[in-house]
Design a protein around this nucleic acid. Structure first.
Lengths: 191, 191, 191, 191
DNA sequence: AATGAATGAGCCTTCATTCAT
DNA sequence: AATGAATGAAGGCTCATTCAT
């Protein structure tokens, strides 16, 4: 059982790396298995088929993201401090490592046709939104919802643009823009 | 020659529809050709290979978008009026028809590995940015650049979220959020 | 279209030979295609999948058998003469050539799970039965039906036993037994 | 050792049921093992490979049939009584239970390529024939051999037709035909 | 220009078999 | 004895691409 978890993790990690290397979900299970150092058959033994492997990978990425968010929020109680942590997490190095970018882009594509991928993505959006609203409410009251939607959209859009622009290496400016947007939104409240 | 142009257009239109139907670039050239009412061989005759067909399709989409933007700007001289037109164009019905959403998502994916797709996407981003800055400058001066980046990112992010959420049918709220962001940015300038 | 018919025939013939060579339906489409001198893809192009190829083969075998029966009945009007012709046809060389035996045995197996194979087999049984009854009626009246059932069963059983016994080479004795059974049945009527 | 016999029997029973469920010898050893409640490895441990398992299954079926025949003959001394018992046994419920039909059909197929299966089938035919001849001799003298061959063939053929016709549920009519054939053969002797 | 028959490489998946425990 | 994880060869099927017509 212990070994099984390890194998699964290895296969998922290999999947991310392979998707990253190819940029596409058009990677063969054999390639993934080879990268994980196991036989192709094993991937099917554990995941049933290719799509399940992809979905498990997506779940893993979202889970990792969730863990990271919670870790970054530990001990932070001030709303702005918390908002900053949430927004920054989306641009932390782990979100760009290996094949994370390619995985995200391809999961967007997958979400169009896979109900489960759709569900996972919706869940992620909901949680992200809740996190933002929770900390925005004390600062913005009823405006919190709208602001959260805009910040959420901005994060996704800038992540996308940053990820697609190979000339960028440092996500710093992207984060700065998001934080600036937060500042602008908050300052507009007082106006 | 006239006929050739027509054939090409039909193949490109068929490509968009087919990508839309599948949600993926995993569509067969034969299916595309059948949809266009021609033989598979003809697609290769005109476009060389599958990737060229996709790139031609992407070019076509971006061209159409450019034409639309210019059309919507005709006769508009007020900066805010122009900005509104630019931002709204991104959520106009044509951006969601047929396979437009699927095409966009997949071109993001393609841009990771295809230099030409990358180039086309960068060009689109640059033009979009210039358009915004041009109209923002009179209102925001040096802040125009930053605002344009945020608005551009927001548009992409909200388009993405809207497109992936099958429960939404009317992009109205998304547009409203973008315009609200514009309003917020401008009001923050006076603060 | 002409060429297509030819290809199909070649593939079906190759299928029979290959099933004959292996004794089983566990032959690969690639083997069949190679035997037919075409690429594996072509078999799928024409027949869709392996099962359709098998069913087409079964149809072909039954059609050939039907043609043979009709040919052997031409000009024969005497009931006994016709009955003899019908019964002998089942043991004619063509029923043992190539992979005919293996094909028959395996189609029995296939008929358990494939509705279409079941249907084809039932059709064959019905026709065979009708043919016998038609010529038996003048000789045996109401007993024709029962006699036909017994003769039909005997033909199938002896064909099976003969086909499975590799030490036999000449189906003569089997035919003799069937004709003897006919004689016995007819003589019993007068008793 | 006692346990080993039990395991073997369970595996053989599972093989029959699995062949019956699939209609084919295309059943996986893993499925058989699961049905028998043991690990796949055990099947190989006991039987060596898949074909040996099939042959052991065939032997088991033939042995069971032999036991049944002998049981049904106990206390019967009259030739006609014995013949009836022999012929009826072939259509007794046990010959249609579980996967018996599928097993028989597939063993016919297997007999084409497996010498051992061929041998087992020939042995069964010989014993069946001997049984019939033994009881026919007192009634038919030298004609016994021919009659036995015809009755044997008829049994096989009608079993085959009955087994493949899913619309039949009661083998009664088939048995009646076989017994009628016996009657006809005997009555013809006196002619 | 245009067709569409034909190819064949490649992929997902299955499964008999092995082997460390 | 027994397990079941793991392998890897093989097969059905797809599809980009070619080419004779």
């Amino acid at each position: 059982m212990k070994a099984e978890q390890k194998r699964r993790q290895e296969l998922i990690a290999a999947t991310i790396r392979e998707i990253g290397a190819e940029g596409t979900l058009n990677v063969t299970v054999s390639q993934i298995a080879k990268r994980a150092g196991v036989s192709p058959g094993l991937a099917f033994h554990y995941f049933g088929d290719k799509e399940q492997l992809f979905l498990a990978t997506m779940r893993s990425i979202l889970r990792t993201y969730g863990v990271l968010i919670r870790a970054n929020l530990v001990g932070k109680t001030e709303p702005v401090e918390r908002l900053t942590a949430i927004l920054e997490t989306n641009f932390s190095p782990s979100q760009f490592e290996d094949g994370a970018v390619a995985a995200w882009l391809n999961f967007y594509v997958l979400a169009q046709t896979s109900p489960e991928a759709q569900r996972l993505l919706a869940l992620y959006h909901r949680r992200f939104h809740s996190n933002l609203v929770y900390s925005l409410r004390p600062l913005a009251g009823d405006a919190a919802h709208g602001i959260a939607e805009r910040l959420g959209g901005l994060v996704d859009g800038l992540y996308l643009r940053f990820a697609l622009n190979r000339s960028h290496v440092d996500p710093g400016p992207a984060v700065a823009q998001v934080l600036k947007a937060l500042e602008v939104e908050l300052s507009a409240l007082d106006g």
